[in-house]
Amino acid sequence: MEAQIAATIVCGLLIAIGTLGVVVPVLPGLVTVAAGLLVWALVLQNTVGWVVFAVGLVFVAAGMLAGAVLTGRRLKERRIPNYSILVGVAAGIVGMFLLPVVGLFVGFAAGLLLSEFVRRRDFRAAASASAVALKAMGLGILAELGCAFVVGSVWTVGVILHFFL
Rank of each mutant, 00 (worst) to 15 (best):
V58W: 09
L38K: 02
V58K: 08
M96T: 12
F108A: 14
L42I: 14
V51A: 07
V43S: 10
R73F: 11
V39P: 10
V102D: 04
G88A: 06
A127C: 02
Q45P: 05
R119P: 09
T71G: 04
G67I: 06
A90I: 15
R120T: 15
L99E: 05
V157G: 03
R120P: 02
P28E: 05
G103T: 07
L99G: 05
L75F: 14
V154Y: 10
L112Q: 08
V26M: 15
F117Y: 15
F108E: 10
R74M: 14
G88R: 06
G103F: 05
M1Q: 12
V51G: 01
T71F: 13
T47N: 12
V150C: 05
T156E: 01
R120S: 14
L161D: 06
V60S: 05
V48G: 00
L14S: 11
G152H: 02
G138T: 06
V23E: 03
I15M: 12
A34M: 15
L27N: 01
L14A: 14
L65F: 15
L99V: 15
R73N: 12
V102W: 13
P100H: 01
K76Q: 14
A127P: 04
V101G: 04
V157M: 06
V58E: 09
F108H: 10
S115Y: 08
G21K: 03
G92Y: 09
E116T: 04
E116N: 12
F163V: 08
G18M: 10
G18F: 10
R73Y: 13
V150I: 15
T71E: 11
L139A: 10
L98D: 03
L142Y: 05
L161H: 02
G92T: 09
L30Y: 00
G29W: 07
S128Y: 08
I141D: 00
V39A: 08
I93F: 14
R78V: 10
G107Q: 09
G111M: 04
L42R: 10
I15N: 08
L99P: 02
I80Y: 01
A90C: 09
R121P: 02
V33Y: 04
V48F: 00
I93S: 06
V33Q: 02
V154Q: 09
L75A: 11
R124G: 10
L86E: 04
L165H: 13
L134K: 03
V58M: 12
E144Q: 15
I15S: 10
G111H: 05
F149N: 05
G56R: 05
V24A: 12
A6G: 00
I80Q: 02
M1R: 12
F59E: 01
F108R: 11
A34T: 07
P28Q: 04
E144K: 13
L104T: 14
L27S: 02
V102T: 11
V58S: 07
V23K: 03
V154P: 11
A16G: 03
A143P: 01
V69T: 09
W40C: 09
G140E: 04
K76A: 15
W40V: 08
G56E: 04
Y83P: 06
V48N: 03
G12K: 03
V101L: 15
T156G: 11
Q45I: 02
T32L: 12
T32V: 09
A90P: 03
V10H: 00
V24M: 13
L134M: 13
L30R: 00
W40T: 10
S115L: 07
V22D: 07
V26R: 03
E77H: 11
R74F: 07
G103L: 06
I160A: 14
